[in-house]
Design a protein around this nucleic acid. Structure first.
Lengths: 148, 148
DNA sequence: CGCTTGCTTGGAGTGCGCTCGAAGGTCATA
DNA sequence: TATGACCTTCGAGCGCACTCCAAGCAAGCG
């Protein structure tokens, strides 16, 4: 019940394409250390993400310990992808806020993602240029360097 | 005399492929503000690069002001390319040291560049994955978002 | 001459994204 | 029931890459 319909209802956390859920085990309540193992983030970072508003409200056990859902994991995977595009954490927090505000923010969210998409493309082109420069230099070392 | 022969002699700053020199004007002694205009770096950053050993020795005017050469500009362009691959400044300082040590470090320099090259390639692949994720999400907003 | 502009230095400050520590509560196992 | 692993909060600290500041020197100009 947390996949396609909920996504279509626009009230969930991720609001993206329905991601395949099957996780390490078949559950839907993970401790912080399980999430650490799954995402590669540290427990400190996970708590910090929550403090700064980058996570939706994470459920708690009756004693106050965090219990992450599969949806939380999906969100973390997405956030991690955004992070390595170089997107500032503040922008991701903004996106998270939009998601919390519901489907009235669809347009703004799409614009944010499209602008991110443009950034990523530009970044790829930059990196390709750099690759060309590196290849030139490496080529130099392969000839001048070896036949010296 | 600072182009091809010097490069082939392996004692210059860049030791890469001979870059075309023609610069904003036809000179070879630029003030820091000219270099700012050309590279987009700030004067603060240029001085800081020098302090940490990322620049070869920059020449001075008779009154102690910096005078950058075309070779210095080439180096800065290269450094800027390396920077946006995400290479740490400390690693670039290491490379600069190798260049200063002369042609006996060709092998190590080549290895460093090849390892950087691998990093850049991996980075490009990551970004392409992220692009795919973004496209999926944007696609969702384009359909669910508009036909809501 | 005084003023402005541009440069010099060393050291201190900033913003980001974590990262760690202290002090204490909870849980599973023997 | 006791031990040890794991969890909680809040606040402070860290590493990186700049970024800025204060104090002062030099050159050009009306």
């Amino acid at each position: 019940m947390q996949t396609t319909q909920a996504v279509a209802a626009g009230q969930d956390i991720c609001s993206g394409p329905p991601p395949r859920h099957p996780r390490p085990d078949g559950q839907d309540r993970y401790t912080i250390s399980e999430v650490v193992a799954f995402t590669g983030l540290t427990a400190h970072t996970l708590r910090w993400y929550e403090r700064i508003g980058l996570m939706p409200h994470v459920d708690r056990s009756h004693t106050g310990q965090r219990r992450y859902t599969n949806r939380d994991l999906d969100w973390l995977v997405f956030v991690t992808k955004l992070r390595l595009t170089g997107m500032p954490v503040a922008d991701m927090v903004r996106y998270a806020e939009l998601v919390r505000q519901g489907e009235s923010t669809y347009d703004e969210r799409r614009e944010l993602l499209e602008s991110t998409r443009r950034d990523v493309l530009a970044r790829i082109h930059e990196l390709r240029d750099t690759l060309a420069v590196l290849d030139l230099k490496i080529g130099f070392y392969a000839t001048e360097g070896t036949t010296r």
